[in-house]
Computed example of a mutant assay.
Amino acid sequence: MAAVELRVEPDGRIWCRPYLGTDRVTGRPIRPYRSWPAGTPLEAARREADEWAAGFAPAAASGAGKRLGSMLVRWATDPARGYSGNTVATYLSAIRCYIEPTLGDIPYDELGAHEVRAAYRELLTDRPGRPAISGRTLTKAHALLRAAYRDWAGQIGRDPMLDVPPPAVEPAEPFALDECDQGGLSAALRSAMGPDGTDRGTVERRTTAFAAYLALNQALRCGEACAALRRDVRAATGDLHVGATVVERPRLMRRPYPKRGSVGNVAMAPEVLAEVRRHEAWQDLWLRSPGPRTPLVTYGAGGALVRPSDLSRRFKALVRELGLPAETVFHTLRHTHATWLLMHGCDMRTVQERLRHRDVATTLRIYGSVMPGRDARAAAAFSSSLTDPKDL
C-alpha cells in the first residue's frame, strides 16, 4: 500500500483522508479521516498514518469499508463460506433491517459488547413508527455477528460477542390441527383430489390438495413435497424416499439433500400409496412426457419444479376456502402428523424417524409438551400417596 499523503494546515494541525476504493454496500468512496494536533512531528504522524491506513487494507481490498455493515455483507456473501442462497438472503435481510440502522457505521474492529447490547435493547423496544421485533427474529442477527466475529477475532485480537448473551426466546409451541379440523381437512383434500378434469383450474386445485395430502401423511416439509419424484415412491419397500428439497435462492433448483441433511425413508400406508398411483395416472392425462423423474407436485404440462412459496400460497388459499384456523400454514401438516402420532401412543423414537430429525432430543424439545399421559400419571400417583397409607 502506498504511503498516506499528509496535509498540514496553517495552524500546524496535520490530517489525512486517503481514498481506499468504493464501499460495495453503500456505493460511497472509502475515505477514512485521521488528524494530529499542532506540534506533532511530521515523521511521527506519517508512521502512525501508515499503520492506521494499513488496518483498512484487508477490508478495502474486498470492496468493503471498515464499517460493520459493509464488512458483514462481504463476509456473508463470500462463496468460501458455502452458505446456501436462503441463508445468505436471511443474513442480508438481518443486516439491512437490524444491524445497519443500529450498528452499521461502527468500525468492525472497534465494536464493543456494550454497543451490541444497547442495539438489542433498542430493537426489542417499541418505538413510534417502529414496533419491537421478537427475540426469535433477533437471533438471526445474533447468529451472524457471532459467526463473523469468530472469524475476525484473529485479526482484531478480541471477540466482543463473547460478552453478549443471545436474545431471550420464548419456546414456540408447534401449531397442529385438532381432531375436528384434521378430519375436515382430510375429507376436503380427498374431495379436491376427486375430479379428473385437466383444465388449468382443476390441475391447480387438485395438485395443491394432493401436495397437502402427501405432506400430511408423510410428514413432509413444503420444499420436500415439491422435490418428491415418482421414482421416490417405492412400492417394493412401501415407503417414500425423502432425499431432496426444492430451494428458490440463489435460483430455483432441486437440492440433493433436505433440511439439515435429514434424508430418510418414510413408510407409506397402502391407501396413501394407492392415492399416489391414482394421482400419477391422472397426471399422465395432461403431462407431455411423464417418467420416473417427474415431480409428483407440478402445475405445468412440462413437469417443471414448483416453488415452495407458490405451493405455500396456494395452500393458504385452500385453507381459507375450507374455513380452517387462520394460523394454518403448510408446515402445520407436518406438526399435525407428529402430534397425532404422539397423542395415539407412538413412541418418541418412531416419531423422530418419521420426521427425520437428526436425533431424538430435537423431537423431544419440539413435541415433548404434547406427549399424553405423563401429567395424568403424576396426578394419580400424588393423589394415591395421600390416600393410601402404605404410600405415606
Rank of each mutant, 00 (worst) to 15 (best):
A192D: 12
H142N: 11
P128A: 07
T102V: 05
F315P: 04
S383F: 08
A361K: 15
S312K: 02
V233L: 14
R313M: 06
Y91K: 03
A38R: 07
L144V: 00
P10T: 09
P37R: 12
S84A: 15
R158A: 14
E204T: 12
I30W: 05
A132D: 04
L185C: 05
G184E: 10
P167S: 11
S289W: 10
R231E: 14
R254C: 04
E110G: 02
S385N: 00
V360N: 08
A59D: 12
L162D: 15
V276H: 05
A381C: 01
L311P: 03
E275Y: 00
L364G: 00
A281Q: 15
A153F: 02
T339E: 05
C180A: 07
L189A: 03
A113V: 12
R320P: 00
F175T: 12
L364E: 07
P250C: 05
S191H: 13
K66H: 10
T362F: 13
D109L: 07
L355V: 03
H357T: 09
R277V: 13
D232R: 08
F330M: 06
L144C: 03
E321C: 03
T137M: 03
L214W: 08
H279C: 04
R365F: 00
S384H: 09
T207M: 08
E275H: 08
R121T: 14
I95A: 01
A53M: 13
L124Y: 07
A326P: 06
G63Q: 02
D181P: 00
D151K: 11
T22W: 11
G21D: 11
L324Y: 11
T332G: 01
R255A: 10
V116R: 00
G197H: 03
G65E: 07
R127D: 01
V319D: 11
R221I: 12
M1V: 11
V370W: 06
G303S: 09
L273I: 06
S70V: 09
R136D: 07
E170G: 06
T40I: 06
L324K: 02
L145V: 09
A228G: 00
M253T: 13
P79S: 01
A378C: 01
A211N: 08
E224I: 10
L240H: 03
M268S: 08
L311E: 06
R374L: 15
R206Y: 12
A132R: 15
A338R: 11
S309A: 14
S369A: 12
L111K: 04
R255M: 14
E9K: 15
H114G: 01
P79A: 04
